[in-house]
């Protein structure tokens, strides 16, 4: 346990000193702030444009639009930032050989995987809460938020999807070789899941559900009970990814 805590602390120090923490929090801060702002000013900009006499009527923006912007940013740019910030967490150590000293000291390989995953999940959680709070504050400043439902649940779904994505990064990095192998494999798997999401029959057994139906929960089209199966599937996949990573990493030749 002491060893696990020590390695997790090292991960945080690494994220801090390699500026990855700064990047993650800056970007998530900007998402939280820009989403309500964009929702507010986009209609004003559009209506201000002179489209050769065409009159376009754009409804006044509401809090729903602000959340729509937030989830759009998070599930597009946000995922890219997560991949850039965490994509090298294992590959960098394997290609540079920094784990050799650590493993030669008898630190269990499962401890390395679990400590890294813990640090990643904690960073993602804190960054998401931080971004969500800023978004909430500014949305309340600009809009009336009375007709919003299931906001926390919707964000929890996004959080669980992120936790799944991080487990996928770990498994891919253990499987693939080279500095970018893990990152590429993660992107390929994500692409595959997005394709599967096109089949309505399969949408509920796909973690993508948790990152694509967020607005349906907020507008009340879907209720949390609709997400029961996807949540269950995603939790199982997370556990499977991490177990497989540990088993494969134990056998990996260094």
């Amino acid at each position: 346990m002491k060893r696990y805590v020590a390695f997790t602390k090292k991960e945080f120090l690494e994220q801090l000193r390699t500026y990855r923490m700064l990047i993650l929090f800056s970007v998530f801060f900007i998402f939280g702030l820009m989403s309500p702002l964009l929702a507010k000013i986009l209609p004003e900009i559009l209506s201000g444009m002179d489209l050769q006499g065409m009159i376009i009527t754009i409804p006044e923006a509401t809090a729903v639009d602000a959340y729509a912007q937030f989830f759009k940013n998070m599930t597009q740019m946000g995922i890219i930032v997560i991949l850039l910030v965490f994509g090298g967490v294992i590959s960098n150590e394997l290609t540079r050989g920094t784990l050799v000293n650590v493993l030669a000291k008898g630190l269990g390989r499962h401890t390395v995987i679990l400590a890294k995953y813990t640090a990643m999940v904690v960073m993602w959680t804190v960054a998401l809460v931080f971004s969500g709070l800023i978004n909430q504050g500014y949305t309340m400043y600009l809009f009336d938020t009375s007709d919003i439902s299931n906001l926390i649940f919707s964000i929890l779904c996004l959080w669980l999807f992120g936790v799944y994505l991080l487990s996928l990064i770990i498994l891919s990095s253990v499987l693939a070789v080279g500095s970018f192998g893990g990152l590429i494999l993660t992107v390929v798997v994500l692409g595959g899941l997005l394709l599967l999401d096109l089949f309505p029959k399969l949408e509920k057994v796909n973690p993508i559900y948790l990152s694509s139906r967020n607005m349906d929960f907020i507008t009340g089209v879907l209720t949390p009970s609709d997400a029961l199966l996807p949540v269950l599937i995603t939790v199982i996949l997370i556990l499977a990814n991490i177990s497989a990573s540990i088993v494969l990493f134990n056998r990996k030749r260094l």
């Binding site: 540079r96 050989g97 920094t98 050799v100 000293n101 030669a104 000291k105 008898g106 390989r109 056998r251």
Partner: peptide
């Protein structure tokens, strides 16, 4: 893989990385 015997060993790789 995971060997307990490493607790007796100190290892200096040919090009140590930190």
């Amino acid at each position: 893989g995971n060997t307990k015997t490493n607790r007796h060993i100190g290892y200096l790789p040919d090009v140590p990385e930190f």
